[in-house]
Design a protein around this nucleic acid. Structure first.
Lengths: 131, 131
DNA sequence: CAGTATCCCTTCCGATACTG
DNA sequence: CAGTATCGGAAGGGATACTG
């Protein structure tokens, strides 16, 4: 286990919780994780992303991509073609975060049923008593 | 790469995006990830958690723990001692999700500086032009 | 200690309309 | 196609007071 005194990597054991939490907040953007995992497969164009993600508005996709650009996670490349084409791609940083992110998403996919089952069970126990 | 036809684990390549996203939303609760990583180290009591996380209100901690309980991630054990003691611990499911979660949190800790630097740079470029 | 109940403010996010 | 602008509702989340 690596834990140099100068940069504790074990979250929670150090006072950087607040800052970490702030970045984690970005991840929790509702669309960020999905967007990154989409781009992890290959660079994508705007509407292509929109179609793939499904259920996202242009508004939110734009915001998400802007935020990711600001954080240095994605690059935005404009191809001055006849119909304008803009391609989004992950940077090295974005690619590196996509790894743990995909692991997480994969975990969720693999345990979705289990979670939903447990939820149903829990909700059933706390069933509203009939009047 | 394991990808049985019955349960595609590669997120984004299947139509379960919405449901996955919904669970991921739970993770993005702003406090969930931090809470789980805290419990991953060892079981904790309510106020102990509150102190460790820092900056969370009882309200939010209660909500977060309740949600995690509902999802089958944590157990809540009441010890009927003189001052009531309640201990929260990760279930097997919670322990299993803590792995990718800690990886993610660790990634964030390790790249915090880089992200903040990139942000500052980006914001500087987009400096508001003086009137 | 370990919660529950309220209040209130902020941010998120979606829908729609418009532009280059 | 790839955005920007504006609006309004819904949800998230903090502070405080109260309870067993």
């Amino acid at each position: 286990m690596r834990m140099p005194a100068t940069a504790p990597s074990q979250p929670g054991t150090n006072p950087s919780c607040q800052r970490v939490n702030q970045i984690l907040g970005r991840m929790g953007d509702k669309w960020t994780i999905l967007t990154i995992t989409m781009l992890a497969q290959q660079p994508r164009r705007f509407n292509e992303l929109k179609r793939l993600i499904g259920g996202i508005s242009q508004q939110m996709l734009t915001r998400t991509l802007k935020a990711l650009e600001r954080d240095g996670m994605v690059t935005r490349t404009v191809h001055p073609t006849v119909p304008p084409q803009v391609e989004y791609a992950l940077t090295a940083l974005g690619g590196s975060v996509s790894l743990p992110l995909i692991e997480l998403a994969t975990w969720v996919v693999d345990h979705l049923d289990q979670i939903e089952m447990h939820r149903a069970l829990h909700d059933h126990e706390a069933d509203p008593p009939r009047t």
